[in-house]
């Protein structure tokens, strides 16, 4: 936020109070609009929380009353026990964690090869990665399913991990970052007799924390919020992830919006907490990769 600002015209000579007044009126206006947008962005979450503490009769009757008079905290234990929520948490965490670790490892290795090593056909293979990135997931969805079926992986978490693990985006992202690291560092290490893996592990990776962090967040979010793959692959309730779990809950408790809101709140808590703690990385990761992509 330290860079220059459109509306903060420091260098413009100011002609007395008139301009000062206009300026502060303008920033008041800006503030007002920002606030309204913020309310619009947050309102659905507030409605969700508030609804989760009401009952079927009051949720729509006084939906303007966002702080319920008699908060019904027992909606939460009810939701928690009516479907195996703890299991959903565990399954989602497990899948997201393994997917992320796998993606980061394989992508970093490949990105290092593309950015810092020489081998015949390098650029052609890299072009293949880029081209693959252009192809929508839906194209691969059906053959992937057939493949998993033939490998006997229907109704397992392995299938969910494998379909996400090799997305070329990670390779692309890290390669672009590795390119910005000067070669002098690795060259001198090479002269000292370091192996390529040592250079990769001890020099390049520590310098790439920002990019790795971005990839971790992307991959984590992507896997955590995945809906279509669990929908395709999982039949057994005990294997469900949060996203299919919440859909399942929605079907089970059709008209009980207060319980559905409680379940949705439960499903969102982990990701919102992680987001609030790591928001800097989320937002900076998005804005930088967004630009470079």
């Amino acid at each position: 936020m330290k860079q220059s600002n459109v509306l903060d015209n420091k260098n413009i000579p100011q002609n007395g109070n008139n301009i000062k007044l206009r300026k502060s009126l303008f920033s008041l206006f800006t503030y007002f609009i920002l606030l309204i947008v913020a309310v619009v962005m947050v309102m659905p979450f507030v409605w969700m929380l508030s609804g989760s503490l009401k009952d079927a009769a009051t949720i729509f009757q006084d939906s303007m009353n966002l702080i319920p008079d008699n908060p019904r905290w027992d909606n939460y234990p009810k939701v928690w026990t009516s479907v195996p929520f703890a299991m959903f948490y565990w399954n989602t965490t497990k899948v997201a964690f393994l997917t992320t670790v796998g993606t980061v490892l394989t992508s970093a290795l490949a990105a290092y090869a593309f950015a810092k090593l020489e081998f015949p056909g390098r650029d052609k293979i890299f072009f293949l990665y880029i081209a693959t990135m252009m192809i929508p997931d839906q194209v691969t969805m059906i053959p992937q399913f057939v493949l998993m079926r033939d490998l006997g992986l229907i109704n397992t978490h392995t299938a969910l991990i494998l379909v996400k693990l090799f997305h070329p985006f990670g390779v692309f992202l890290l390669r672009q970052f590795f390119l910005t690291i000067p070669n002098e560092l690795s060259d001198s290490a090479r002269i000292d007799g370091c192996s390529e893996f040592r250079i990769f592990w001890n020099i390049i990776l520590p310098l790439s924390k920002a990019a790795l962090g971005t990839l971790v967040i992307f991959s984590l979010l992507n896997s955590w919020n995945d809906f279509i793959n669990p929908l395709i692959y999982l039949s057994d309730q005990s294997l469900f992830t949060l996203q299919v779990g919440i859909r399942y809950f929605q079907q089970l408790y059709g008209a009980d919006y207060h319980l559905i809101m409680a379940a949705t709140t439960l499903s969102l808590i982990p990701i919102i907490i992680v987001y609030l703690f790591a928001q800097k990385y989320f937002i900076e990761g998005i804005s930088t990769t967004g630009l470079k992509g």
Binding site: T106, A110, L117, T132, L165, F166, P168, V171
Partner: peptide, 21 residues
């Protein structure tokens, strides 16, 4: 060495992305 680095990703990509395409 370079191919070793590339291999895990390339094999995975071939099986789970390129082949399905």
């Amino acid at each position: 060495v370079a191919f070793m680095f590339l291999l895990p990703s390339l094999i995975g990509l071939s099986i789970f992305v390129l082949y399905p395409i």
